[in-house]
């Protein structure tokens, strides 16, 4: 669970933001509205980075941050105050913040965390030719997965390759962070330190920081291994996600890309047309090659551009079209808004 002060990071001095959107983004609650607003807040890289977040505690923290004048209520959400900004900067100066939060979404992070522990432990015991040891507490699924890979890739030089990669990955990192990451592994005659113990040793980082650092370094190491393109490629690759879309939205998007009409997709997948549209909005947010023109025709583009081009996408109001008696599906309005929002990035 993130600490109270760490939440200030997600607020801005210039853009009012609704805390509920931030909470849902961190929890990976994927309604189109959450994703859309998460995109507008430039926070989608944080999607699903705090799956253990307690919604009640989050809301309490926000109330406290308001009471402490770090956040200020505005019509469109909460704004970071001057002292809130200072507090945020102080916090960021001391605590650990993931360096590549978007990596968390790109692979099965939980499974990889287990697989990585097994990789280091098994590699370590192998280097000492020891077969009798208690396997690190990991899920059966991870053990089964790792065992299969290990049987196919066990070789005389495996331990050395693990060691080489680990050293070269950590070589460019801050000393204290590298030390903490290395102290989190079990192996032959080596017992990992717990987050509480590491926090006590570090004197800089809290338990929460240590847990975040471990997760962040684990996924960074996975991405590092993928780039090396050696024996570990086949260990990490199956854990990478093909797409940032939810499974169901991905299936819909695949059919859409094959040219299937929205109505037909609904029939084939036995879902409502409104669900198909939601899936495609999700795809429009995440997929850079999304073909907006397949849904919005030239004439509709012109109407939308004429009505909204002067304002930033965030300030557009669908009501405006209704007031002018222009009949255009909200779905197309929102798609256009997503397309134009991309220019902001």
């Amino acid at each position: 669970m993130p600490s109270k002060e760490s939440l200030l990071y997600f607020f801005s001095r210039t853009q009012s933001r609704r805390p509920a959107v931030i909470r849902q983004v961190l929890l990976n609650k994927r309604t189109v509205s959450n994703l859309f607003w998460g995109m507008q807040y430039h926070l989608l890289e944080w999607l699903g980075t705090a799956p253990q977040l307690n919604a009640g505690a989050f809301d309490n923290f926000i109330t406290q941050l308001k009471a402490e004048n770090f956040l200020q209520e505005k019509p469109a959400g909460l704004l970071l105050t001057e002292i809130g900004l200072k507090e945020k900067e102080n916090y960021e100066h001391i605590h650990y913040r993931p360096k590549n939060p978007e990596f968390f979404q790109k692979l099965d992070e939980k499974m990889w965390g287990d697989v990585l522990q097994l990789l280091i432990q098994v590699g370590s015991e192998l280097s000492y030719c020891n077969k009798r040891y208690y396997v690190s507490a990991t899920s059966y699924k991870a053990q089964f997965y790792f065992k299969r890979w290990f049987q196919q890739n066990k070789s005389a030089g495996l331990s050395k390759t693990i060691k080489k990669n680990l050293l070269s990955f950590l070589a460019g990192k801050l000393q204290e962070e590298a030390d903490i990451f290395a102290a989190s592994f079990n192996g032959h005659g080596v017992i990992a330190k717990t987050a509480v113990q590491l926090a006590k040793s570090s004197e800089t980082y809290t338990v929460e920081d240590i847990n975040t650092l471990w997760r962040d370094y684990s996924v960074m190491f996975a991405m590092y291994l993928i780039k090396q393109n050696d024996v570990f490629y086949s260990l990490v690759k199956p854990l990478l996600k093909n797409s940032l879309l939810s499974n169901s939205a991905f299936t819909t998007y695949e059919l859409f890309n094959k040219g299937v009409s929205l109505e037909k997709i609904g029939q084939l997948r036995k879902v409502k047309l409104s669900t198909v549209k939601e899936h495609l909005l999700e795809a429009a947010i995440f997929e850079h090659n999304f073909t907006f023109e397949r849904i919005i025709n030239q004439n509709e583009y012109k109407i939308l551009a004429d009505n909204f081009s002067e304002k930033a996408p965030l300030d557009w109001n669908y009501q405006q079209l209704k007031e002018k008696n222009i009949q255009l599906d909200f779905f197309k309005f929102r798609l256009f808004q997503i397309e134009r929002s991309r220019y902001d990035f």
Binding site: G123, D179, I180
Partner: peptide
């Protein structure tokens, strides 16, 4: 905290 290089060399023989 121990130097990570030392920990890693303990881990791998």
């Amino acid at each position: 905290l121990e130097d990570y290089r030392k920990v890693i060399s303990h881990l791998f023989n």
